[in-house]
Computed example of a mutant assay.
Amino acid sequence: MKKKHSLTLLALGLMLSLNANAAFINGSFETPRFTPGTADWTLYSDSTEGIGWKTTATDHQIELWSDNFQGVAAYDGAQFAELNANQVSTLYQDVAGIAANSILDFHFAHRGRLGADTMQLDIVDLGADNLFGGGDDTTLFSNQYSDDNTAWGFYTSDGLAPIVALGNTLRFSYISIAAAGGNPAVGNFIDAADFGVGVNDPSPVPVPAAFWLFGSALAGLGVFGKRRTA
């Protein structure tokens, strides 16, 4: 029975991995997690383990807020990010391994801090050299979003023209455009971000037929183990 249980767990793990969007990291900015009662906001280096994001800011600082700090509730989870940390800058992730001709999806929440703030979402194929600004980049999507400080706006790629991957590394970027109050260190809250293939689809990712063949083989091994035990 122990062997059968282990095989069942293996099959379940493989199935979960097939349904996971593992390319995008820390979309709701829950890592690093604040220690309750010790901090309401914190600056982290973009090299911090688990943070997942990079910034174009020259000081490499990313600003995270805790839920309900200054009356702003996180859209998702217990933390969110302020795009303008110490500078007007861009938060981005580079995502590799998405096959050419895949249809890309995204979603995210955006909110102003002192009033109406504006940011831009860019999705850029980095070309054969997989380097940003290498001369062969292709912008697959670009759009600006504005929200005031009374509520989060939530945006998805649903209903838009298909965003088609070219097969190279992709850069997913939030770019600070404008912030109320004129302070470069204030504005543009971001939360609940995700990007990849099928991220807006609530149904499970179709499981390849090969998996079910493998699952049948595991089931056979389980039965065999049971008969030997008996």
Rank of each mutant, 00 (worst) to 15 (best):
Q93G: 03
Q93E: 11
A96P: 01
I98D: 02
N101D: 15
S102I: 04
S102G: 03
I103Y: 10
H107I: 00
F108A: 08
F108I: 05
A109T: 04
R111F: 04
G112P: 01
R113S: 06
L114C: 01
L114M: 13
A116D: 07
T118N: 03
Q120G: 00
D122E: 15
I123K: 05
I123H: 04
G127M: 13
A128N: 14
D129Y: 07
L131C: 03
F132P: 02
G133A: 12
D136W: 03
D137H: 09
T138N: 10
T139P: 05
L140Y: 08
L140S: 07
N143P: 01
Q144M: 07
Q144R: 14
S146M: 09
S146D: 01
D147E: 14
D148Q: 05
D148A: 10
D148I: 02
N149E: 08
T150V: 08
T150D: 09
W152S: 07
W152K: 02
G153A: 04
G153S: 07
D158Y: 06
G159S: 09
I163V: 13
V164I: 15
V164T: 15
L170T: 09
L170Y: 11
L170N: 06
R171V: 11
F172D: 04
S173K: 11
S176F: 00
S176D: 13
A179R: 01
A180F: 08
G182Q: 05
G182P: 01
N183A: 15
A185E: 11
G187W: 03
F189D: 01
I190N: 05
I190W: 04
I190Y: 08
D194M: 10
F195C: 00
F195P: 00
G196L: 02
V197K: 08
G198D: 04
G198H: 09
V199H: 03
V199G: 02
N200A: 10
D201Y: 05
P204S: 04
P206T: 05
P206H: 06
V207R: 05
V207D: 05
P208K: 11
A209C: 00
A210W: 11
